[in-house]
């Protein structure tokens, strides 16, 4: 069970003067149950990449295998793929359209031609997963707070019962509280439901905290693919790509430069605190 990309290439405006590589020979394999962080600055190809993973965009060349099957093979069930690989776009609340929360979440399962009972039980389960109880079911999605709307939209994708959940900057525009709630819920989905998560984010601090593995994109190419710890070691290269490492990485690097023997791969506040306290024997 995996997603495997082989020499995935996507060219916009092929054959015109504006020809541009959005993806260039990208290779990777994502295993079941991983929590992947996908980073890259605006225009690095990460949005193009995630739209390939559920077949919304088709590669110009290269192959994409889902559970060992080539999704570009003739007669491949694209609709089936889209229900297994759920994609939550940036500002997903902009896709809400039904008069009440419950009907909106039912939209996905309804498109899968399931029985009414199954549709409703899936919608209930999905809303439960994002922490919205029955009091929300009959409310208009447009009267909820920003964070709640976004949870409804995520539930709309979860109701398809995907095995893989891709989220494009799910915390954009939210305040710290809304951000922590959403990320906490994603973490829980990963832990409790065993979903494979692919999270696109600009926040290196969040990546350091949640992701098992980071894929770094730059100008359509995959630059790094490793644990956050190992990727943030390359903070100078990240900066050259218009990215950065968490603030803690910089502090740790500066301490080491002064000859203070702290470990190089500390990436969270807690780790740095403990390392410094250990050093002075506290």
């Amino acid at each position: 069970m995996s997603i495997r990309a082989v020499n995935l290439t996507h060219i916009y405006g092929q054959g015109t003067a504006f020809e541009q590589y959005a993806l260039k020979n990208v290779n990777f394999e994502i295993q079941d149950g991983e929590f992947i962080g996908l980073i890259g600055h605006t225009g690095s190809g990460k949005s193009t990449l995630i739209q390939h993973l559920n077949g919304l965009l088709k590669a110009t060349s290269g192959e994409l295998y889902y559970n060992g099957e080539n999704i570009y093979a003739h007669g491949y069930d694209m609709k089936g793929l889209r229900s297994k690989v759920g994609l939550v776009f940036q500002y997903p609340e902009h896709q809400l359209f039904e008069a009440d929360v419950f009907s909106d979440v039912c939209f996905g399962p309804k498109n899968l031609n399931l029985s009414q009972g199954e549709i409703e039980s899936r919608a209930k389960e999905a809303l439960n997963l994002v922490g919205l109880d029955e009091s929300f079911y009959k409310q208009s999605p447009f009267e909820l707070s920003g964070g709640q709307k976004r949870r409804v939209a995520i539930a709309g994708v979860l109701a398809m019962k995907p095995d893989v959940l891709i989220l494009d900057e799910p915390t954009a525009g939210l305040d710290p509280k809304g951000r922590d709630e959403i990320l906490g819920q994603i973490e829980k989905l990963h832990r409790e439901q065993g979903l494979t998560i692919i999270l696109v984010s600009h926040s290196m601090e969040d990546m350091a905290r949640y992701a098992d593995r980071l894929i770094v994109m730059n100008k359509g190419e995959k630059m790094f693919d490793d644990t956050p710890r190992n990727v943030f070691r390359h903070y100078k290269e990240l900066e050259a790509m218009g990215l950065a490492a968490p603030q803690i990485t910089y502090i740790v690097q500066a301490l080491r430069k002064e000859g203070i023997p702290v470990e190089e791969d500390l990436i969270t506040v807690e780790e740095a605190r403990d390392a410094i306290l250990r050093l002075i024997g506290k």
Binding site: N54, L56, H94, F97, F107, N111
Partner: peptide, 29 residues
């Protein structure tokens, strides 16, 4: 349109009435 397609919406097949109906999730938002 892409976001609704990710939720299984189909904008391309079906007869005229089905197609018109399938536009609702696009037009309302």
């Amino acid at each position: 349109m892409k976001a609704q397609m990710a939720r299984g919406a189909d904008f391309e097949s079906g007869n005229l009435i089905q197609r018109a109906k399938s536009m609702v999730p696009l037009l309302v938002p």
